[in-house]
Nucleic acid binder design. Structure first.
Length: 577
RNA sequence: GCCCGCGUAGCUCAGUUGGAUAGAGCAUCGGAUUUCUACUCCGAGGGUCAGGGGUUCGAAUCCUCUCGCGGGCACCA
């Protein structure tokens, strides 16, 4: 159990012992104080309970403190400020917690499976071209969040929603057909609005290989479906192999076209009609710049305002087909019917305006039984030689994931995409992310892990026959670790479960990367101290017992970093190149 | 016009969901170090948390108004 959860229960116990067990203690916390002179754990208990008990907070704090003092896990207690109770934890408690980290290794702090089904939908890029920089952040974020929630015990499913039903697929097919004609010797020019990227050239070649010139003898209505299927399959292979560059694998690719084909949208709308959630009505014209072809008309609307949206949403287009949103309703209903009451959608910054209606959709289709969290990932600004790399989608010169990968590799991409919270924009600097110095957090954290292995390799020589892989660190005397900087490192290690659980709870994987950077700094700092003070080195001459205890600590650093980097999807190397 | 997000040190950003004297990296300044165990180390200065008002024991955090930046705003995907 997380130490803060443990001490909260100790505090609650003590208050019950005082005869106030019936009070509401939900707002009581037990947290690490910002200021280290305030002890290991601070609680606001007295300030929360002073009102119902009609006592002065400091008096109440004093009473609680006296009882806490008697607890075995507490070494000293003091009342401070407006009524905080600051607890210093008994060394024996740290030692026993640390011992369980040493024993549990990479499983330390990992909760039991909770069997809650949870779906993370991410990437969901239109299958009309390669994965590019605009998709990378959401992809890494979604994948790492899924890793994190998996670690936290959820039954996680990763899904990619494929927008294969819209007109852009037809445009894609036409664009591929042009390339096909080009391969057959035609002069082509690619009209505005078509996909100009040269990734369609191989598709054109493959079409020739498959069909020869037969397509040219068909009407458009005949060849388009053929080309569409062909090019979609090709795009999929390309997207999947792009995603593999980042080690991202989906459990399922969900086709929008299926929803149209198998009647799921009609069914969804039928259900909603039966529940009175659909009506014929007219929406007020949007403010600001009106589209040229705007005309006010009566349409089929979803009563989204009943479920928290600002405006009701159209379900059927003027040509009689379903809107994109109608398909989305059916899609999220499908997730719910598959048993996912917890859903997360990861979207790009340009979809911010979509959040409310999606949440309304999930509430409506599940009748408030399911919950959706939408994570919006802000844009990534690419910098090279201090210049912003501009790109234009129209010209097709966007930076692809493959370009990025070829230049810097997987680890810097993944780590840097997670070194900001999702709502904050990222500056991705090509020159810095492969830098080998403290300025580059990717390197700094990976290096800390590599350094633990380096130490173990040296220990093999210094301590005859030692082998970190085989050695049973639970046999070492951990109470020998008493230096302040060692204790600080151990406390940082013991903070891992709280950090990881909080990150999981709030769907914020960036907390992991910041924690790892902090842990690495602690570890490197201790190492550096060993330069000046040989008695603080991990391997101490003529003191094997102390060396083993310190190696247990080094092993714990390795284990925590390995798990943390694993969640981020970043490699934990045994050696830096 | 409306909705969403953001605004924290010179710069880029964290901030344990309401806690005590607001942190880190870079940059700046001041020292140490010359290869010692692996890609330097230690320290200092630097703040009206965009601004006003409110809620309470206590606000960067919650409410409200104002300003600035970004994104979005019938039927497109």
């Amino acid at each position: 159990m997380d130490i803060f959860v443990h001490f909260k229960s100790v505090i609650v116990e003590v208050i019950a012992q005082m005869g106030h067990g019936e009070l509401d203690m939900s707002r009581i916390n037990a947290e690490p104080p910002r200021d280290k002179t305030h002890g290991d754990i601070a609680t606001n208990a007295a300030m929360i309970l002073c009102k119902p008990l009609a006592m002065k907070p400091r008096d109440l704090a004093q009473n609680i403190a006296e009882l806490l003092q008697a607890h075995a896990d507490v070494s000293s207690v003091e009342v401070a400020g407006p009524g905080f109770i600051n607890i210093n934890v008994a060394p024996s408690f740290w030692a026993s917690r640390f011992a369980s980290l040493v024993a549990q290794k990479t499983d330390f702090g990992k909760p039991e499976k909770n069997n809650i089904k949870l779906m993370v939908e991410f990437t969901s890029a239109n299958p009309t071209g390669p994965i590019h920089i605009g998709h990378v952040r959401g992809t890494v974020f979604g994948d790492s969040l899924a890793n994190l929630l998996d670690w936290a015990g959820y039954d996680v499913f990763r899904e990619y929603y494929v927008n294969d039903a819209g007109s852009q697929i037809i445009t894609l097919a036409r664009s591929a057909y042009l390339r096909y004609c080009e391969v057959l010797g035609d002069e082509i020019n690619i009209p505005e609005g078509f996909y100009p990227g040269d990734y369609l050239v191989p598709v054109g070649e493959a079409l020739v290989e498959q069909y020869g010139d037969k397509l040219k003898q068909m009407d458009e209505s005949q060849y388009i479906p053929l080309v569409r299927e062909f090019v979609m399959a090709a795009m999929f292979e390309m997207i999947k192999s792009d995603l593999l560059l980042l080690d991202v694998k989906f459990d399922n690719f969900f086709s929008e076209r299926e929803l149209h084909a198998n009647g799921a949208i009609e069914q969804t709308l039928g259900d909603m009609r039966a529940r009175g959630l659909v009506y014929q009505g007219t929406l007020p014209a949007p403010k600001g710049q009106l589209p040229d072809d705007y005309e006010e008309r009566e349409q089929t609307l979803f009563k989204a305002t009943d479920w928290g949206d600002d405006i009701d949403r159209a379900l059927i287009k003027s040509d009689g087909s379903f809107t994109y949103f109608a398909a989305d309703l059916a899609y999220h209903r499908d997730k719910y019917l598959r048993g996912y009451k917890q859903q997360i959608d990861v979207l790009g910054a340009d979809h911010g305006g979509y959040v409310k209606r999606l949440k309304a959709a999930v509430r409506a289709v599940s009748n408030n039984d399911a919950e959706l969290d939408v994570k919006i990932c802000q844009i990534v600004k690419l910098l090279k030689n201090d210049e912003v790399q501009t790109m234009s989608k129209r010209a097709g010169n966007f930076v692809t994931l493959k370009d990025l990968y070829n230049e810097v590799g997987k680890d810097p991409i993944r780590f840097m995409m997670l070194y900001r919270k999702n709502e904050a924009p990222i500056d991705f600097d090509f020159d810095k992310v492969t830098d080998k110095s403290r300025e580059n957090p990717v390197f700094y954290v990976q290096y800390a892990h590599a350094r633990t292995y380096s130490i173990m390799r040296q220990a093999k020589v210094a301590l005859d026959g030692f082998d970190a892989e085989q050695f049973d660190f639970t046999e070492t005397d951990l109470t020998l670790l008493t230096d302040e900087s060692e204790i600080n490192l151990i406390k940082s290690l013991l903070n891992w479960p709280k950090v990881a659980l909080t990150a999981a709870e709030f769907h914020e994987p960036h907390r992991i990367s910041f924690y790892l950077f902090d842990l690495a700094a602690n570890f490197h700092g201790l190492w550096n101290k060993g330069k000046e003070m040989p008695q603080l080195r991990f391997i101490v001459d003529d003191n094997d017992a102390l060396s083993y205890a310190r190696l247990a600590m080094v092993q714990a650093v390795a284990d925590v970093i390995k798990v943390g980097l694993g969640i981020l999807g970043v490699n934990a190397p045994q050696q830096m190149k």
